[in-house]
Computed example of a mutant assay.
Amino acid sequence: MSPAEADVPDAGEPTEALEAVLGLLRLERTGHDQCTGGSLDHLSGRVYGGQVLAQAIVAAGQTVADAGLPAERLPHSVHGYFLRPGKLDRPITFEVERLRDGGSFSARRTHAIQDGLPILSMITSFQERQPGLEHAEEPPEVPGPEGLESSADLFARYDHPAARFFARHGAFDIRHVEGSIYVPRGRSPLSRQALWMRSRGRVDGDQLLHRALLAYACDQVMLEPVLRRHELVWTSPGLSVASLDHAMWWHRDVRADEWLLYVQDAPSAQGGRGLGLAKVYNRSGALVASLAQEGMVRVHAA
């Protein structure tokens, strides 16, 4: 990734799908430490995990912004558990507990509630900008996104319910370096992959919004290295996948509407669970985030 490669067209005007996601993250404040949000349709028939994760980050961030602190504090880490499947036809209430506002850090616990029960429980830590030691791992050498197949082009070629759904509702352009695993194709059993991703349109918003959008986007690809290792694709018969927990660390500012490189691996799968890891780099090669997610991965006999 050379500096010249950074001179690429921006993401353009937001698509209808991206506008829908942005609208979803504009939560309604219903109390001092409470707000409410809706859900977008999802192919699984339940609330998409990345959606409720991003909404919970925004909800927690609002209580930091109004805490009267002397400087802006941004989320630097999240640890959450997906406890129950969310219902698409029910609103989600986000209840935030103010755990601590220290000299540099703030901590919030957020519960996403439906029908009186938590579907997500999450702790987010925030920090004001401070100087300190600085280093980061370099990204691997991979082809840039311009020469790779867009997920939008791929979905447009297939007459399949999943392809039609994501062609219409996909808010992010995803481009796999090793070839996608949306449909069967030639592949090798590797537990690693790399892909580029950015929103389908410019995003005018602050760092809280862009960091929440990164959380929204990453949930849809975190377990793909597990599938790739076992030569599965998203349309494999009998495949059942669900996120169990999610950990995320933001190291530097990030923009969801600029190309981001995900370098992923799956060190283990066992007992119907798989672990996905990812490092996320911006186009200039800076490490902006690290992620870990464990999920249920089962293949039922046909």
Results as ranks from 00 to 15, higher is better:
Ala4Phe: 13
Pro189His: 03
Ala4Ser: 15
Phe105Asp: 07
Asp253Phe: 04
Arg84Asp: 09
Gln62Gly: 15
Val177Tyr: 01
Leu27Glu: 05
Glu72Lys: 01
Asp115Tyr: 03
Leu18Val: 05
Gly271Ile: 10
Ser236His: 11
Gly49Thr: 03
His251Arg: 14
Ala302Gly: 14
Pro143Ala: 08
Pro9Asp: 07
Ala247Gly: 08
Pro85Leu: 08
Tyr182Thr: 02
Arg108Glu: 12
Tyr281Trp: 11
Glu138Met: 10
His300Tyr: 13
Arg252Thr: 04
Leu227Lys: 01
Ser77Gln: 08
Phe126Trp: 10
Leu260His: 01
Ile113Leu: 09
Tyr281Asn: 09
Ser188Gln: 15
Gly86Tyr: 06
Ala67His: 04
Leu120His: 08
Val241Thr: 13
Ile119Glu: 09
Tyr216Pro: 14
Glu146Thr: 15
Trp249Gln: 09
Gly23Lys: 00
Ser106Glu: 12
Glu28Met: 08
Ala301Ser: 07
Glu294Pro: 10
Gly132Cys: 11
Val288Ala: 07
Val280Asp: 05
His79Cys: 02
Glu231Met: 14
Leu53Met: 15
Arg157Gly: 10
Ala247Gln: 06
Glu16Trp: 01
Tyr281Gly: 10
Val203Asn: 02
Gly38Cys: 06
Asp219Pro: 09
Leu190Pro: 00
Ser240Val: 10
Ile92Tyr: 04
Tyr158Ser: 07
Leu25Asn: 05
Glu16Ser: 12
Gly49Trp: 02
His176Ser: 13
Tyr281Ala: 10
Pro161Cys: 09
Leu117Glu: 14
Leu190Arg: 15
Leu227His: 07
Val241Arg: 01
Ala194Leu: 00
Val64Lys: 02
Trp249Tyr: 10
Arg198His: 06
Ala6His: 08
Trp196Tyr: 07
Tyr281Ser: 12
Asp204Ala: 15
Ala171Ser: 15
Ala20Arg: 10
Thr93Tyr: 10
Leu22Glu: 02
Pro14Met: 03
Ala67Pro: 11
Glu13Val: 12
Ala20Tyr: 02
Ala6Leu: 14
Pro3Gln: 04
Gly147Cys: 09
Gln114Phe: 13
Gly103Glu: 06
Val183Asn: 04
Ala292Tyr: 08
Leu244Tyr: 08
His42Tyr: 14
Thr110Lys: 00
Pro139Tyr: 11
His160Gln: 12
Leu213Gly: 08
Ala247Cys: 03
Leu291Trp: 03
Met222Ile: 08
Glu5Ala: 15
Pro225Val: 05
His135Cys: 06
His169Asp: 08
Leu40Asn: 03
His176Ile: 00
Leu40His: 05
Gly201Trp: 02
Val78Asn: 00
Ser106Gln: 07
His230Trp: 02
